[in-house]
């Protein structure tokens, strides 16, 4: 661990990401990005697949101090490859001094990361592309009105999962998909735990090769909660064990925080309108039990 990142006091006190972006008030994705950008620094090129974050940079306004490039939803890793190759060629030909090199960061939502962009991602990891993939996970297609994505959790109501029991499938495990590719690094983070996030970004930054940063992004309109609660919801996701904080490095998965005592998942669920139907007008005992038992099973394996 970087000894310089021990306490909150060690985090940057000036912020690189410009104010005035068009993201919602209280956006958990923006929170993570603003913390991450401070550590990655301005020498980054963000390759952004169509998503909420597309609204960050809309001509002539950008919150970034470096480059940002827009790609189609499936193509951010391919865009990052192009940027990386161009930089390598320029440096190789002596047209760009090596100290002016940039880090290519694919920036996408969960819809692109776990769905339509997965094949491009898999290929990029196979090729050993030197890039960071930053997925902010608001568990749905946020930009188009929160339809279900493969990352939508069991029981959540979205624009396309109505019905009495909410979303019928369970969340696709992006971290495990990455780990199966044996990348250089993969980590889960949440903006509500800035210190854990900073240590992981610091680690990822120093490595070369394909790296995943998967950030849980509490989304006030999509999850229907008051924006003031965005940090608390992120903390509860960790404390209830719904969002494990972990990293994959040197071929091993390590949990950077094991919640103890672990709160019941209901503490997390009941704060969000997208799960309200599990509590009103009657408790949906079955779905609540299924959600809890999935989380219990996960931690039973971790702690075995």
């Amino acid at each position: 661990m970087n000894p310089a990142l021990r306490r909150m006091k060690d985090l940057p006190s000036t912020h690189l990401l410009g104010a005035g972006s068009a993201m919602c008030a209280g956006c958990g994705g923006l929170l993570a990005l603003h913390e991450i950008y401070d550590l990655l620094g301005a020498r980054t090129v963000f390759v952004n697949a169509a998503s909420c974050m597309t609204l960050l940079a809309s001509y002539p306004f950008t919150p970034f101090r470096g480059s940002w490039l827009y790609t189609a939803m499936a193509s951010a890793p391919a865009g990052a490859q192009g940027v990386r190759d161009a930089l390598d060629i320029l440096i190789g030909q002596g047209r760009l001094p090596p100290e002016e090199d940039l880090t290519a960061v694919a920036l996408t939502g969960d819809g692109a990361a776990t769905g339509i962009g997965l094949s491009a991602t898999s290929g990029a990891i196979d090729r050993g592309l030197d890039f960071i993939y930053l997925c902010y996970d608001n568990e749905g297609y946020g930009n188009t009105g929160q339809q279900s994505s493969p990352a939508t959790p069991l029981g959540a109501r979205t624009a396309t999962s109505g019905g009495a029991h909410g979303h019928a499938a369970s969340k696709k495990d992006l971290f495990a998909i990455w780990v199966a590719h044996r990348p250089v690094y993969a980590a889960t983070v949440v903006g509500a735990d800035p210190l854990d996030l900073a240590r992981k970004i610091d680690k990822a930054r120093a490595l070369t090769g394909p790296r995943l940063i998967h950030a849980l992004a509490p989304c006030p309109p999509g999850w229907s909660f008051d924006p003031a609660e965005a940090v608390e919801i992120g903390r509860l996701a960790v404390k209830t064990g719904v969002w494990p904080l972990k990293e994959y490095v040197d071929g091993k998965v390590v949990h950077t925080h094991v919640p103890h005592p672990r709160l019941p998942v209901e503490e997390y669920l009941k704060r969000q309108g997208r799960f309200r139907h599990l509590f009103e007008p009657e408790r949906d005992v079955q779905v609540l039990a299924r959600i809890q038992s999935q989380v219990d099973a996960y931690w039973a394996e971790v702690c075995a």
């Binding site: 909150m8 985090l11 006190s13 000036t14 912020h15 990401l17 410009g18 104010a19 005035g20 972006s21 993201m23 919602c24 008030a25 209280g26 956006c27 958990g28 923006l30 929170l31 603003h34 913390e35 919150p63 903006g191 509500a192 800035p194 006030p220 008051d226 924006p227 003031a228 965005a230 940090v231």
Partner: peptide, 29 residues
């Protein structure tokens, strides 16, 4: 300042926070 998603809280030299009301969206985080 760290948890304001909008970079709307600056930390001054004397370590006091200062809110940038031109940009604060009022999330109340």
């Amino acid at each position: 300042s760290t948890l304001c998603p909008d970079s709307a809280i600056r930390v001054l030299a004397d370590r006091s926070p200062e809110i940038d009301l031109e940009h604060c969206k009022g999330c109340m985080i």
